[in-house]
C-alpha cells in the first residue's frame, strides 16, 4: 500500500484550478493558433485574433481566460494500492476547489440547489468521477466546465437500426443547435454506447483528450475526421458570425451497449476547453 495524505490532493487541486483558468493547455493553444491561420472570413479571423490576444492577456496579467470559470469537473483515477490518510477524499477535493477559486479570484458559479438557487460562495461542490485503476498512483484531471456550451449539450437514445447515419445526424444537429450560443469554435465530446449515464460520462471525458489525438479504433477515427469537416462546413464560424472554423476538434469515445440501444451523447465545449492532468 502507498499512503497519500488527503492534503496533497487538496494542494494539487487548488493549484490546478488556478492554472487551468488562466492558461490553456499547449494542445488547445496550438489548435486556436492553427484556426487563426486557416480562417478565411474577415470577421472570423478578427475574432480568432481577439481570442489569441485574450489568451496572452489572461496568462500575463492573471485574468481568467473567460469569466465563466465553470463548475469544477474532476476525474480521479485512484490506484487500488493507494490509501488516503488524514481525511475524507471528497472533502479534500472540494477543499482544493474552494481554495483555488477563492485565492485565484475565480468566479463562484455554483448554486446549492437547482431550484432554490443560493450561491454556495466558493464554487463547491465539484462534480467528481472516481475510478479505481491498477497501481499505486492517483491521476487527477480537472476540467472546469462553462455552461454557455454545457447548456447546448444533448443526449439521444437512438435505436440500433439508426446506425452510424443516425449518430452522424445527432452530432451535426447538436452542433448546429449550439451555434453562436456555445462560443464557437467549439470542441465536441461524443460518447457512443454504454447506458444513458455512461454515454454522457464518455462524452465529458472525451473533452479532456489532447487536441489532435484521435481514437485508435479505425472507424471512430474516420468518424471524428468526417464530423469535424462536416461541422466546419456548416459555416457557423468563430462567435457564430460566419466562417469556416466552427469546431476545433471532435473527440469520440465508445463502449459496448445493449442489444436494444444506441445511446449518443454530445457534450459541447467552447474554445476555452480547459483541462489539466496531474499524477501523484
Amino acid at each position: 500500500m502507498r499512503t497519500v495524505p488527503a492534503e496533497t490532493i487538496t494542494e494539487a487541486v487548488e493549484a490546478m484550478c488556478i492554472k487551468v483558468c488562466h492558461e490553456l493547455s499547449d494542445d488547445m493553444k496550438a489548435c486556436l493558433y492553427d484556426a487563426y491561420e486557416k480562417e478565411t472570413s474577415d470577421t472570423g479571423k478578427k475574432i480568432l485574433g481577439q481570442l489569441k490576444e485574450n489568451l496572452g492577456i489572461a496568462s500575463k496579467e492573471m485574468i481568467p481566460i473567460c469569466q465563466d470559470t465553470g463548475m469544477a469537473v474532476i476525474f480521479l483515477k485512484v490506484g487500488q494500492e493507494v490509501c488516503f490518510t488524514g481525511g475524507d477524499i471528497t472533502d479534500a477535493v472540494n477543499e482544493g476547489v474552494r481554495r483555488g477559486y477563492t485565492k485565484g479570484y475565480l468566479r463562484k458559479s455554483v448554486v446549492s440547489d437547482p431550484i432554490q438557487r443560493v450561491n454556495t460562495g466558493d464554487n463547491t461542490p465539484a462534480v467528481i468521477h472516481y475510478e479505481i485503476v491498477p497501481g499505486d498512483k492517483v491521476m487527477i484531471t480537472l476540467a472546469p466546465k462553462g455552461f454557455g456550451s454545457e447548456n447546448m449539450s444533448r443526449l439521444f437514445m437512438l435505436k440500433p437500426s439508426d446506425g452510424i447515419e443516425g449518430v452522424k445526424n445527432a452530432i451535426i444537429a447538436a452542433a448546429k443547435d449550439a451555434g453562436p450560443n456555445a462560443c464557437p469554435p467549439m470542441v465536441i465530446g461524443v460518447g457512443i454506447g454504454g447506458t444513458f449515464e455512461k454515454c454522457a460520462l464518455m462524452a465529458k471525458e472525451a473533452l479532456t483528450r489532447e487536441a489532435g489525438v484521435h481514437s485508435d479504433i479505425g472507424y471512430v477515427r474516420e468518424l471524428e475526421e468526417e464530423m469535424l469537416t462536416k461541422i466546419n462546413e456548416l459555416g457557423i464560424g468563430p462567435a457564430g458570425l460566419g466562417g469556416k472554423i466552427t469546431a476545433l476538434a471532435v473527440n469520440i469515445n465508445t463502449y459496448p451497449t445493449h442489444i436494444a440501444g444506441l445511446p449518443v451523447a454530445v457534450n459541447i465545449c467552447c474554445h476555452v476547453n480547459r483541462h489539466i492532468t496531474r499524477e501523484i
Binding site: I47, Q50, L51, E53, N54, L55, I57, A58, E61, I63, P64, I65, C66, Q67, D68, G148, P180, C183, A239, G240, L241, C270, H271, V272
Partner: peptide, 13 residues
C-alpha cells in the same frame, strides 16, 4: 450587440 464570448480578459481592459 454581440461581444466575443470567451474573450473576458481582453474585454475587461
Amino acid at each position: 450587440f454581440a461581444a466575443v464570448g470567451g474573450a473576458g480578459a481582453l474585454l475587461s481592459r
